[in-house]
């Protein structure tokens, strides 16, 4: 199967007066598992639909492989899309659903059957071929929808929130299966989700969208460790953001919070930025004051099993701190005065 990349250049799209996509640029490599991550209304689904050819035609350029597909009818794009609702046709059997695309391609019936069987086999549901969709569970419907899409051998596979209608345990199982299938078929795949865990666990690279603008593109780890802005920082994992300013004194640099507390920064840090991003697992709690420590008060604590999550008022804000739990560890009581020591060696100032 041919692997196609997708290039998106300066794509703009409006619904009436509302601008939904504001100059999107992306280069998705052939065979890549790529995620669009963002909150509702960020434009991620709209972008996906624009690639598939649904909705109004945007301005800009969208190329799939060597073809410029902008303005092309959806049925001419050879793009496979799996819908959030699965969109299995209730009046057709599973076999007819899966065979639909092949029939539309005028493939002889004799060739359709083995292909459909193979696709159903791929998702492990060959035994359900003669059922009607409303006799299937959500997970089964999801797999049938997937089989229906890949049986026509599209150049790229688009998945629109494919896991959102499944329950939690099934979701984990399905996302592994999706990844297995993607690797097996080597299909260029775009996966739209608002769940960072899904994006993190499956994608090679991802784009975080907000307000119709791509905020950052990169591998899940790169985005987590080095968010390009506060939105990305907050959207990916839990982030404590302290307001203040950077003071540079020769090679030394430190971050001064609103409350006047100081945190030293790695040498050579630049003076721009008025927020420091601290991940909860990079902060330690101590009873006594010390170097690079913020005084604070415990507001709340939650036992999460492997961790204890504290909410501590410090540096003019409420800070989330995670402590690994081990047997015999003593807990800080609500109301206790504590000092937070942050590991600022790879803290991000924005």
């Amino acid at each position: 199967m041919e692997r196609a990349g997708i290039q998106i250049e300066d794509v703009h799209l409006s619904f009436g007066d509302t601008q939904v996509l504001k100059g999107v640029n992306l280069d998705i490599k052939p065979g890549e598992f790529f995620a669009f991550l963002g909150p509702s209304g960020s434009g991620k689904s709209t972008l996906l639909r624009a690639i598939a050819g649904f909705g109004p035609t945007p301005q800009g350029r969208i190329r799939i492989g060597e073809r410029d597909v902008l303005g092309l009818d959806p049925w001419k794009r050879n793009v496979g899309m799996v819908f959030q609702s699965y969109a299995l046709w209730p009046h057709m059997s599973v076999r007819d659903n899966v065979g639909f695309g092949l029939k539309e391609k005028k493939m002889p019936t004799a060739q359709i059957r083995p292909k459909v069987d193979a696709a159903l086999d791929l998702v492990g549901l060959q035994h359900l071929a003669d059922r009607m969709p409303n006799q299937l569970s959500g997970g089964q419907q999801q797999r049938i929808a997937l089989a229906r899409t890949i049986v026509v051998e599209p150049e790229v596979l688009l998945l629109d929130e494919p896991l959102s209608n499944l329950d939690a345990s099934l979701r984990v199982q399905m996302r592994r299966e999706l990844l297995r299938l993607q690797r097996q078929l080597g299909l260029t795949t775009i996966f739209v989700t608002h769940d960072q865990e899904e994006a993190n666990t499956t994608s090679d690279r991802m784009a975080v969208l907000d307000g119709g603008v791509i905020q950052q593109v990169g591998s899940p780890q790169a985005l987590y460790d080095a968010p390009a802005n506060l939105f990305v920082a907050k959207f990916l994992g839990t982030a404590n953001i302290l307001e203040g300013r950077v003071e540079v004194d020769g090679p030394e640099a430190r971050f001064v919070t609103k409350t006047g507390d100081e945190l030293s920064l790695p040498q050579g840090s630049k003076a721009d930025g008025s927020n420091i991003v601290l991940r909860p697992q990079n902060i330690e709690i101590h009873r006594e004051a010390g170097q690079n420590a913020l005084p604070g008060t415990v507001l709340h604590k939650e036992f999460l099993g492997s961790q204890i999550r504290y909410l501590i008022e410090a540096g003019g804000t409420e800070i989330v701190v995670d402590q690994s739990h081990s047997v015999g560890l003593d807990w800080y009581e609500v109301g206790a005065n504590v000092h937070l020591r942050a590991n600022t060696s790879n803290a991000v100032v924005l």
Partner: peptide
């Protein structure tokens, strides 16, 4: 009729009268 019902068919190469007739 959910729009995805139609779009799924378009996505698989169906359109026009065939889309109307079959879906």
């Amino acid at each position: 009729i959910d729009r995805s019902m139609e779009e799924a068919a378009q996505n698989l190469g169906s359109h026009g009268m065939r889309l109307f007739r079959r879906i």
